[in-house]
């Protein structure tokens, strides 16, 4: 579904991605892990076209997405820190995005309902707490029934109940055959939702394995310890 070939990106002298090669298939939840600054967010932003790579290619269903924009109708994105126009209300932000994506056939308002966002519709985005902004981001990411979801540390600012709601939503969408990329540092959460783990280190692919595969390889029962073991090995 998504193929990344020799992706390179540097910010000034700092090389964030060094010839990254990886591919993801449908119906999977892939957890992207790695130390801070390993290039996880940059990879997501490259797929979205927010960050423009220095070299390499990103293909969606065999077609390069670089320099294009229409393909983004198939992607839902939830940023690490949602930044929204401060004096717009929740209602206006949601209506604006819906207005822009009028051609979407299906509108999924499940998260708006579950997070009870309608009761806060008239609050300004600038007045919202970090967690509520995350809820808005999540609702927007899932709203247009995209085939691919890129969730950047989705549960980081959410309360436990909201995080549970999101996790069950992720699993539900997976069953519908979607590809879901999640960056996360919380091992228990990864174990709960993910099928595969992709580990980035210093801008390169360290490993890309199924969870069972990782455990078998490290001969460990707990995922956290297994991953730590593999990362220490070399």
């Amino acid at each position: 579904m998504i193929t990344i070939e020799n992706l390179r990106k540097s910010y000034g002298k700092l090389q964030v991605l060094k010839d990254l090669n990886v591919s993801f298939g449908p119906g999977k939840v892939v957890s992207v892990i790695g130390p801070n600054g390993a290039g996880k967010t940059t990879m997501g932003k490259c797929i979205l076209g927010m960050v423009l790579p220095d070299g390499g290619d990103i293909k969606l269903d065999g077609q390069s997405v670089l320099g294009k924009h229409a393909y983004r109708s198939q992607i839902g994105y939830m940023p690490q820190i949602g930044r929204y126009p401060e004096n717009m209300k929740i209602r206006q932000v949601i209506e604006m995005i819906r207005d822009i994506r009028k051609d979407a056939k299906e509108v999924d308002e499940e998260l708006i309902g579950l997070y009870n966002l309608k009761s806060m519709y008239d609050k300004r985005m600038g007045a919202l707490s970090g967690g509520t902004k995350q809820k808005v981001s999540a609702a927007l990411a899932f709203m247009f029934n995209p085939r691919i979801l890129i969730l950047d540390e989705p549960t980081a600012g959410l309360d436990p109940i909201a995080a549970e709601i999101l996790k069950s939503k992720i699993l539900k969408e997976k069953k519908r055959g979607k590809l879901i990329l999640i960056t996360s540092h919380i091992m228990s959460e990864i174990e709960e939702v993910a099928d595969e783990v992709m580990c980035l280190m210093d801008g390169q692919l360290k490993f890309h394995e199924t969870i069972a595969g990782i455990k078998a390889q490290a001969n460990e029962e707990r995922l956290g310890r297994a991953i730590a073991k593999i990362m220490e090995e070399d």
């Binding site: 979205l48 983004r72 994105y77 940023p79 930044r83 929204y84 126009p85 995005i97 994506r101």
Partner: peptide
């Protein structure tokens, strides 16, 4: 001041 607004739109299927 519109930076956030543009960031929001760039992730949507719209030409930059």
């Amino acid at each position: 001041n519109s930076y956030e607004f543009m960031e929001l739109l760039v992730a949507q299927p719209i030409n930059r």
